[in-house]
Amino acid sequence: MSQVAPLVSLRAANLGYGGVAVLRDVDLDIAAGDLIAMAGPNGAGKTTIFRTILGFIPTISGLLVRNCALNEFGYVPQSSALDSTFPITAREVVAMGGFGRLKPYERLPAGEKQRLDAVLEQVGLAQLASRSFFSLSGGQRQRMLIARALMVGPKILILDEPLSGVDPESQKAISDLLVKLNREEGKAIFFSSHDLRMVRSVTDKILRVDGGKAAWQEASTEQHPW
């Protein structure tokens, strides 16, 4: 697969919850500079792979190797998974990405504020920073969450369905952003989607997850796999 040392490796891994495997014999390497999409229908196990890599759930069997610390993962959940009860601004959400570097009682230092402004500029939403996070559109929220993941200073970005539930214009903006981050900053990016056409416009490295298996999708396959 990749020529560089992988940041994350899964070897013959069985993944699932409570000892019940959802996916079997998963082999996967994610190296620096990779841009990998994971495609598959809802419930196929895409999120299970993410959660295993991020250490939220253990592997049932097989091998998982991480060559970077957990706080070097930039994780972008689906924005609908966050609780809209919070009267939180977009800036406060993005700032959370820097919390791992601060002592509990420490005020946000000037360097972190500059970094915050920089990532907001990077996703092109600096002008919306003071708005309520949940008053933004789905696409804008997704980009804010990408900014939060960038705030971590990650070696690898993991994005759960970043293109779902957003309008076509936002899908294009998010895809362009992912490609830019990968090409210009060399970030490893691993994202999931059930929109194969959109996935192909971003990368040709596609992991197909379906029927309890994860396999690499041939680049020439045009037909929808499920």
Partner: peptide, 22 residues
């Protein structure tokens, strides 16, 4: 007050709290 950031992060997004604060 001192740990408001950690409590808020943990309430808002437990996954990120796990990744960043262990």
């Amino acid at each position: 007050v001192l740990f408001r950031r950690e409590f808020l992060l943990n309430s808002f997004d437990r996954d990120l709290s796990f990744l960043l604060t262990g």
